[in-house]
Simulated scan of single mutants.
Amino acid sequence: MSVDLKRTDSPTLHGSKTPVVNFSRRQFVSSTPALLGGASLLSACTREPDPQGYEAVAAQTWRVGAVAGTEGAALSEELVRCATLAPSSHNTQCWKFALEEGAITILPDLSRRCPAVDPDDHHVFVSLGCAAENLIQAASAHGFEAVASFDVMRDAVRLTLAPKPAQASPLFDAIHARQCTRGDYDGKPLSREELVLLERAGTSSGVQMLLWADRPSMERVLDYVVQANTAQMVDPAFVKELKSWIRFNGPDAVRTRDGLYSASTGNPSIPAWLGELAFDWFYTPKSENDKYVRQIRSSAGIAVFVGQADDKAHWVEVGRCYERFALQATALGIRNAFLNQPVEVRSIRPQFAAAIGLNGQRPDLVVRFGRGPALPSSLRRPVKAVLV
């Protein structure tokens, strides 16, 4: 998703603890020799009074919380914390949480919307679905069944909680390690068994997942990624919006606890003024398109998520399915990252849909996957900041 669905996510969508957000094309620089060749010099210029500050905050953000003995308000806040570890577009964390007896409601925070890349708020509601799925998995581990429904009047996801025997799963365990890994993978294929598990996790009665692991199909998707990425990069509104969410160094990432931390894309941590210059110099259609060619060809496969209807309730369901897919991938040691350009550029979306065999349906998310190294973690705002 344009979603670190940036997430970033986070995560983003994430360091030795591996998390998010985010959407792969959110890098401000590709592997440009002129910049990366001087990475050590640029890093040396960074003024970070506490070089461990970012790492310490990231470790706290992605910590594994206690399961036994948590109850009452502390339990509600822990469930919300797990929910916020989900990815969101540009790692904007476009959600708010309302706590009540026996229920938690997730509402859109439209002050954090991205109108250039997401004019109809599609990614906002996909992000709510990702957060809802994390909360459902965490509730089960803490001894509650969380049942999700879409509240049309409030455009919100309501999760009712009922006690049940606690049951932690590999998907719950993966919440604290999941990330959108916006780097190169090892190019090796996955086993048939792994592909089946991913497809099962990413599918529901309201969402279809198309999965390709053959090179001709992946090249076909690559063609549309390049077309759409080029269209976005010559759009001044898109570029300005993306740049506003980039955090060029650890202190800035810690200060805001959101956005796309440059180190999470494999780039050096540098002063903001230098980062803005580097962005303007090196963020070009050619450099970014070359990066996507390399990254897609290093992947084991591509998945496209398609909701049965083009409405907010199904966008939420798409988010839930994607998040299950991402958690299952994490549990298997598989990375993933968004390639959402073909679904974000309105003029290209119908062409892309037709090319992949969809008859009048809207493709919601495009994701590449494969095995590769973790990258540094994205951050999340404190729970208190997202409660209403």
Rank of each mutant, 00 (worst) to 15 (best):
S149W: 07
L99M: 07
S149L: 09
R112K: 14
S88Y: 10
S111D: 13
S140H: 13
S89M: 15
R113I: 01
K96W: 10
P108I: 00
A116S: 11
P108R: 06
A132F: 03
C114M: 15
D120H: 15
E145N: 08
L99A: 08
G102R: 06
R113Y: 02
V152M: 12
L107Q: 06
A138W: 00
L85P: 00
E145I: 03
C130P: 03
T84L: 04
R113S: 03
R113G: 00
E145H: 06
D120I: 12
A132V: 02
F125G: 05
V117I: 14
L85V: 11
A116V: 12
P108V: 04
A138D: 05
A131K: 04
A141K: 04
A148Y: 08
V126L: 07
S88W: 05
H90A: 09
A98W: 04
S149P: 05
D118Q: 07
C130K: 00
W95C: 03
P108Q: 05
K96S: 13
P108C: 07
A139N: 01
D120P: 07
L110V: 06
A148C: 12
D118A: 09
D109R: 00
Q137E: 05
D120M: 15
D118Y: 07
D121I: 06
C130Y: 03
L128G: 09
L135A: 05
T92G: 09
A131D: 01
V124D: 02
E101G: 08
C114W: 06
T84I: 06
Q137F: 00
F97W: 12
S88C: 14
D151F: 09
I104D: 00
A98T: 07
N134Q: 14
F144R: 05
M153D: 13
R154L: 15
S88T: 10
A103Q: 01
V152S: 13
D118M: 11
D151R: 11
T105Q: 01
T92R: 15
D121F: 14
D121W: 13
Q93F: 12
A98M: 10
I136P: 01
L135R: 01
T92A: 15
I106E: 03
H90L: 15
E100T: 15
V124E: 05
